[in-house]
Design a binder for these strands. Sequence first.
DNA 1: TAAGTTTCCGCAAACGTTTGCAATAACTTT
DNA 2: AAAGTTATTGCAAACGTTTGCGGAAACTTA
Lengths: 155, 155
Amino acid sequence: MTIKHEKAIETLRLKGHRLTPQRLIVLSIIASGDGASGDGHMGVDEVFQAAKKAYPYMDIATVYRTLHLFKDLGVVTEVAIGDRLHFELTDPNGRHHHMVCRVCNGAFNLSPHYLAEFRDTLNKEFGFEPDLEHFAVSGVCAECQESSQEQQIQD
Amino acid sequence: MTIKHEKAIETLRLKGHRLTPQRLIVLSIIASGDGASGDGHMGVDEVFQAAKKAYPYMDIATVYRTLHLFKDLGVVTEVAIGDRLHFELTDPNGRHHHMVCRVCNGAFNLSPHYLAEFRDTLNKEFGFEPDLEHFAVSGVCAECQESSQEQQIQD
DNA sequence: TAAGTTTCCGCAAACGTTTGCAATAACTTT
DNA sequence: AAAGTTATTGCAAACGTTTGCGGAAACTTA
Ligand SMILES: [Mn+2]
Ligand SMILES: [Mn+2]
Ligand SMILES: [Zn+2]
Ligand SMILES: [Zn+2]
């Protein structure tokens, strides 16, 4: 049980939400970060399947509701990867955004400092306050650009 | 019939796609830009309802397939507004990104120049090539920030 | 610990969007 | 103009996600 994990439970209680077995199970699955991608981001179905092992009556609607609650509380971070939702436990000491590759669906962390100037500009020029907590930019990662170049040479 | 609209038809023909009535209808609806939002971006259902008036057998799957084809050809630009897809005819002389307000669902145009530096940084630091054609940043617009401030004062 | 209050859950149905499939229609060739 | 080729369509079913509802469980109070 990590400190992040304990703080998350404390946040739930402090904001007056009930500590149901379903919520604790989903939280510990996300906290384990033990998803197929290996980068700590877990797909909704991965969470659901793992949750059913711990508690067979678990419903997919409960998983979604729980993840959205955690997102609203800032306990988890949502990342859209290849048009499916993924989640990771928020690390207050390691906040980051994401670059998502549309070819391999890899998600790469991006330090907030790369967006600080962009945020300031939008603020000053337009009075627009961007939601950067769940910011992700999609594109093609370095590795996938290389492999598509090899492909072209072979043609 | 605008020049953008004619060029779009020419693009279809040149790339070997068939000029079906369904495609021409969807294209002219998007080209009209006559959506409820007033900013030229049209929701999928708006397109579908208008298309059914011109051609009653029109199917929603055809609308989606057509819009995605147009997107791949660069003829239309997709903007996700409040987690629904919207589309506008691409203007080669007025390319822009979008700021989308999560409160009022307004979509505000953003000149590419605001993202040029961000793109360069991702390229140089990570070899990541972002897809900026359909880039949209979500947040809260100036107007909605003001009204939520008034709200707080009243409380 | 028992009763009362209110949030939360499982279920089923709905949402917006995508997909497989067999029939049709756009284009090409003759 | 007719026949042949193949992309595109309408339909229905499926996808991932959200929502309404009535019963159940978490917490509060006594
Ligand atoms: Mn991450
Ligand atoms: Mn626009
Ligand atoms: Zn990649
Ligand atoms: Zn707004």
